[in-house]
Amino acid sequence: MFDHQRRSLTIGSLCLSILLIGYSLPAYSTEKGSIRVATVLFPPYVTLNSNQEVSGQAVDKAKQLFKRINLTPIFIPLPWKRAIQSVENQEADVILPIFRTATRDRLFRFTTRPFMELDVVVFKVKGKQLSSVDGTLSFLKGLRISRIRDVSTSTEFDKMVADGEITIMHADSIPQQMNQLLQGRVDLAVGISGTHLPFSGEGKPEIIPIPISTRSAFIATSFSAQHAGLFEQIESALLSMEQQVQGE
């Protein structure tokens, strides 16, 4: 009976070891010629076309980048938290575009060069009248403003928030943010230029022509991922694309 138990335990331990070995294998392999890219629907940068295929400005740029290192990107559109988890669990190899925050710096390895530069702007409901828009952010004082949670906008704006000059209502997604604006729950919204376009039309969001700042978006992967030089290749491709733009 004890011998049978020992044999069962040995077989069970062997099976568990095999499972653990399989689980720890890197998700990325140059032999596959592809790379799994987690992303979030973020029109017009990441969206779905009429064929329900992932497309958009960020997708086009990512395709150009990975072509330079002979990889075919497989885009995986997910809700934000699930996209983050997919990289942490190595169900995806990288995530893009992603903004850096202090919290995310502890979770991910970011490219040193930005993947994209995006303008941060102020949105208002079309037709809404504002007083004293003088080219500075002083017109924001005393207003209720929607902002995506955990996303910094600019040093000046963040200081106004810290000083209590602006009341912030957080949103967890762009649709939620735009709904807050359109329903009159806030006076204005702060976000990335272009993200209002799917909501455009009569009485819909429009940009106030006063840019707040420019935000750098990056490519990131998990610290625990074993990518055999992948990030070095991505960095090289980003540099090459940057030099090409500068030379045009």
Rank of each mutant, 00 (worst) to 15 (best):
F115E: 03
F110N: 09
L181G: 10
R185I: 05
I210Y: 01
R106V: 15
S17P: 05
G203H: 11
L9V: 11
I208Y: 01
Q180S: 12
T72M: 08
A225H: 04
Q177K: 10
E206N: 11
I219G: 00
N70Q: 13
L71C: 02
R6A: 15
L181M: 01
E232P: 00
S154A: 13
G22C: 07
A171V: 07
C15K: 04
V121T: 12
M116P: 04
P209N: 13
M241A: 15
R147L: 10
F123T: 14
I208T: 04
I98T: 08
L197H: 11
G22M: 05
V122Y: 02
K81M: 05
Y45M: 10
G229E: 01
S132C: 07
K126W: 03
E88M: 12
L65D: 02
D134Q: 03
F218L: 09
K126C: 10
P73E: 08
E88G: 04
T101C: 02
V151H: 06
Q5E: 08
L143C: 05
V37E: 04
K128N: 10
R113K: 15
K128Q: 15
P44N: 01
Q5A: 12
R68Q: 14
I84W: 00
I74D: 04
I219E: 00
V190D: 01
L130G: 09
R106H: 08
K141G: 09
R149F: 14
I21K: 06
Q244V: 12
Q177N: 13
P205C: 11
I84G: 01
S55N: 11
L9N: 12
S86M: 10
L107E: 08
F42L: 11
L19A: 13
P77M: 07
L14Q: 06
S213L: 05
G201R: 15
T103E: 08
R104Y: 05
R6H: 11
L78N: 06
F115D: 03
E242R: 15
G127N: 09
M178Q: 10
K67Y: 07
I35H: 02
F123Q: 12
V133R: 08
I168K: 09
D119G: 08
F110E: 04
T214G: 03
E117I: 15
L16G: 04
I18C: 15
L188M: 11
K128R: 14
A237S: 14
S131G: 12
Q233N: 14
I166Y: 01
E88H: 07
A220D: 00
L19W: 04
G56T: 14
S132L: 13
A228D: 14
E248A: 07
L182W: 05
Q183R: 14
E31R: 11
F139G: 07
L181C: 10
R106Y: 09
P77N: 06
I69W: 05
V161P: 00
I210A: 09
R7Q: 13
I212H: 02
L71E: 05
F2C: 06
D134K: 11
F223W: 10
S24Q: 12
G22Q: 05
G22V: 04
I148E: 01
S132E: 12
S17H: 00
T112D: 14
S138Q: 13
V161M: 00
Q176A: 11
N51S: 14
T101D: 01
A83G: 15
G184C: 03
I192H: 08
E206H: 10
I207Y: 00
E206L: 12
Q90R: 15
